Simulated scan of single mutants.
Amino acid sequence: MMKKWNKAIAVILSMSMLFLLGTHKTYAASKYVVLEAQWKDGHIDHVQTLLKDGVTYGSIFSFGSEARLHWSMEDKDTAVLSGSRKHIVVNLGSNIAEVDGQEVDMGRAPVWFISHLYVPIKFLAAALDGEVAEWDAKSGKVTLTGLHKYNDNFSSGMLGYTYSILSQVGDLEITHENTGKTVTIPLGIKDIDVNTHNLTMDFEVTSKNLLIATIVYSDRKTSVYDLYTLVFKNQGLIRKSIAHGLTEQIESIRADGKIQLINDENIRVIEDETGNILEVNAR
């Protein structure tokens, strides 16, 4: 009698374990493999990714975050990566995804594994404007190249204000951190591409309390850059200068304390404190 009870308990426990495992989206046949992700901006990631049933998968949320895209679950079955220049939608249970408004067959449906949502890596690489460059069948290592990043804006804080360059229009938006009031200054930085260029923003305060903001947009390969210089007095813009195609470093504040602003035609020398133009020299 005791042996029968022991067998019955064992069967019940086995069935309970199967039921519990069935409530989680796990896959015993899955394993991690090494993936090298080479981004077009020169950054390289070495991450573990998933191999299941002969297909290599990548975490859509991890790659989306690295690509500077916002990720979210639109509902319990729909995952979205979004930015001003990229929009990717995948649906659980379906191998059909949407990339920038176009339907794409991923080949396999997404997979949940230990709290991550995985999609076929070939699809993910193509959706991020890259490709699978190499797959080592022996080691399982996969190499992706040309992956893009899609920054929406570039921000920096100074003296209670946030200065943001909006990549869609290339203008500078200044926001008061307490009131939320914004001012937009047209710059015309067109076609910002963070995959091939660097964009930096720096600030200097002169001895007589003018604020100089310098924005540099430079080509990584050639080091040629465009320089945007803005001079503020009491948070109001008093001077703006834009120069394209520079190759040498330009200092905004000279050794004598005067400020020089360079544009495509000339170099203006202005007075500290007042911002008055003292001289204009041909470039």
Score class of each variant (00 low, 15 high):
residue 97 A to H: 01
residue 270 I to W: 10
residue 168 Q to F: 02
residue 102 Q to F: 09
residue 99 V to R: 07
residue 123 F to Y: 14
residue 100 D to W: 04
residue 156 S to V: 13
residue 47 V to I: 12
residue 137 A to H: 07
residue 105 D to G: 07
residue 88 I to P: 00
residue 81 L to A: 11
residue 261 L to S: 08
residue 266 N to S: 14
residue 45 D to I: 03
residue 63 F to K: 03
residue 196 T to V: 10
residue 174 I to C: 06
residue 180 G to P: 03
residue 10 A to K: 00
residue 132 V to T: 10
residue 204 E to C: 00
residue 212 I to P: 00
residue 33 V to H: 06
residue 18 L to P: 01
residue 209 N to A: 12
residue 271 E to Y: 03
residue 278 L to A: 11
residue 30 S to Y: 03
residue 177 E to K: 09
residue 36 E to V: 15
residue 49 T to M: 10
residue 174 I to T: 05
residue 17 M to I: 10
residue 22 G to A: 10
residue 254 R to L: 15
residue 217 Y to L: 06
residue 156 S to R: 12
residue 65 S to A: 12
residue 109 A to I: 08
residue 22 G to Q: 01
residue 221 K to G: 05
residue 57 Y to E: 03
residue 32 Y to N: 12
residue 167 S to A: 15
residue 46 H to G: 04
residue 269 V to T: 15
residue 203 F to H: 12
residue 41 D to M: 08
residue 281 N to R: 12
residue 33 V to K: 08
residue 21 L to H: 00
residue 276 N to W: 01
residue 121 I to N: 07
residue 170 G to Q: 06
residue 180 G to T: 02
residue 72 S to P: 00
residue 37 A to I: 12
residue 101 G to C: 06
residue 234 N to F: 03
residue 119 V to T: 11
residue 277 I to E: 15
residue 132 V to D: 09
